[in-house]
Amino acid sequence: MRPSSLSTVFPAAEAATLTRRHALGALAAAGVLGGLPRLARAQGERAVRFILPVAAGSGVDTIMRASSQALGQALGQTVVLDNQPGAGGVVGTQALVKSPPDGLTLSVVSNNHVIYPSVLKSVPFDPVGDITPIAVMGSTPMVLVVNPKLPVKNLREFVALLHASPGRYNFASSGNGTILHLAAELFKDTTGSYSTHIPYRGFGPMMQDIVGGQVDWGVGALPAVQGQVKAGNLRALCVASPQRVAAAPEIPTAVEQGYPGFVVDGWFAVVGPKGLPPEQVRRVHQAFVTAFATPEVKEAMARQGNLINISTPEAAGAYFRSELQRYAALVKKAGVVPQ
């Protein structure tokens, strides 16, 4: 999980690409492709790169790796996942906005995308104006986890521990002002507790140090932490959802443990660079609808606990704007100082 960039190709072999080209040529000669859009035929021979502005193993990364093969089939193209974490997601997103709007470079972003303006003194792009919204895909539950050596079994015991020793315990996040940081700040505000914030450069290093005991607790997306929880390397004290999650029914909610204010989830959305043509937006949107409706992807999303509800491009744009305002208020309430 340490590398700053990780790419996965489906399929990777050049021979497969050559075979596909020969097959397309044969079909074209037979007139089979005559009814297909010319754009799709031209695109089909080139890979689509999805820049993920997160580290390998994080929520968005886990979701995309589970759906990439079906997505490639729906697009009729090779799909490449390119992890470019850093600065809470700014590094990867900056690479996206500098890309040509040709449908060959896209991205899947999370809540962090609309948090930037509130937590950074300077952002090298406009998170709304410099992208083309394609769809908000859905949401993923957040889980509060602790190192299992902490002498707590539930949320009430944990809050009591924090109250008994203010400042003794610390929490990790994937970066200052990220959704994982703000979720933890919301927990502190809801419970009236205090812990020292230790920001990391990405989810992987953060989670590694909670498991190792260098940091006491943190908040992570369910798909990204459930493996460590099942292995006993982390203890999950609650999900920050209104109701228990079918993928992890054994984890109680904060609400049922007496803390109704700790409700937050992570959403994920597919976007392109500014100026992506409408026909490309429609093509990519339909590919996601098709891929996420396949039995294998539906099963993977259910297993991870993700709730899929694919929006229209227009609704995605409106959602980005409303979330900008919501997180600006949360950042102000949490007292996060822009850096």
Rank of each mutant, 00 (worst) to 15 (best):
Glu279Lys: 04
Thr191Pro: 07
Pro252Phe: 13
Asp189Val: 00
Val271Pro: 07
Ser241Pro: 01
Val239Tyr: 07
Pro223His: 10
Gly204Pro: 08
Val239Ser: 11
Gly272Ala: 06
Arg282Glu: 14
Arg201Ile: 01
Ile198Asn: 04
Pro278Phe: 02
Val289Trp: 08
Gly220Phe: 01
Gln243Gly: 04
Ala224Tyr: 12
Arg244Val: 10
Glu279Thr: 10
Pro249Lys: 02
Met207Gly: 13
Val211Met: 15
His197Ala: 12
Asp189Ile: 04
Pro205His: 08
Ala287Ser: 12
Thr290Ala: 15
Gln208Leu: 08
Val225Ser: 07
His285Tyr: 09
Val219Ala: 03
Asp189Met: 09
Asp209Cys: 01
Trp267Asp: 15
Pro223Thr: 06
Phe288Lys: 03
Pro260Lys: 02
Ala291Met: 11
Val284Thr: 12
Asn233Trp: 11
Gln280Ile: 08
His285Val: 01
Ala246Asp: 15
Arg235Thr: 15
Pro277Ala: 08
Ala254Gly: 04
Met207His: 12
Thr290Arg: 15
Asn233Gly: 12
Val270Gly: 11
Ala248Thr: 13
Gly227Cys: 03
Gln280Cys: 02
Leu237Gly: 07
Thr190Glu: 11
Asn233Tyr: 12
Met207Gln: 14
Gln286Lys: 12
Ala246Tyr: 11
Gly212Pro: 03
Pro205Met: 06
Val229Phe: 09
Ile198Cys: 00
Val271Ala: 06
Gly232Thr: 07
Gly258Val: 05
Val271Gly: 05
Gly275Tyr: 09
Val239Phe: 04
Ile210Phe: 02
Ala254Lys: 00
Gln257Asp: 08
Gly213Phe: 07
Gln280Pro: 03
Val219Gln: 03
Gly192Pro: 07
Val264Lys: 08
Arg201Ser: 13
Pro205Gln: 13
Ala287Cys: 04
Gln214Thr: 05
Phe262Lys: 00
Pro223Ala: 06
Gly204Ile: 02
Leu276Ser: 05
Val215Met: 09
Val211Ala: 11
Phe262Met: 02
Ala248Arg: 08
Asp209His: 15
Gly213Met: 07
Gln257Tyr: 05
Gly202Arg: 03
Gln214His: 14
Thr191Val: 11
Pro242Tyr: 05
Trp267His: 14
Tyr194Asp: 09
Ile210Arg: 06
Thr190Val: 11
Leu237Asp: 10
Thr190Pro: 03
His285Asp: 07
Tyr200Asn: 07
Pro277Leu: 03
Ile210Tyr: 09
Ala287Arg: 06
Phe268Leu: 10
Pro205Asn: 11
Ile251Met: 03
Val245Asp: 12
Arg235Cys: 03
Val289His: 13
Gly212Phe: 05
Asp189Asn: 09
Trp217Lys: 00
Gly227Val: 04
Val229Glu: 06
Arg283Ala: 10
Pro277Asn: 07
Phe288His: 13
Val289Asn: 11
Pro277Gly: 03
Ala269Pro: 03
Arg201Trp: 02
Pro205Thr: 07
Glu250Trp: 14
Val239Asp: 05
Pro277Ser: 07
Thr191Cys: 10
Gly204Asp: 14
Glu250Thr: 11
Gly232Asn: 09
Ala247Pro: 05
Ala240Ser: 09
Ala287Asn: 11
Val229Ile: 13
Phe262Glu: 02
Phe288Thr: 04
Ala240Ile: 00
Gln286Phe: 06
Gly204Trp: 15
Thr196Met: 03
Val255His: 08
Gln228Leu: 15
Thr253Asp: 12
Gly266Asn: 15
Ala221Trp: 02
Ala254Val: 01
Val270Tyr: 09
His285Met: 00
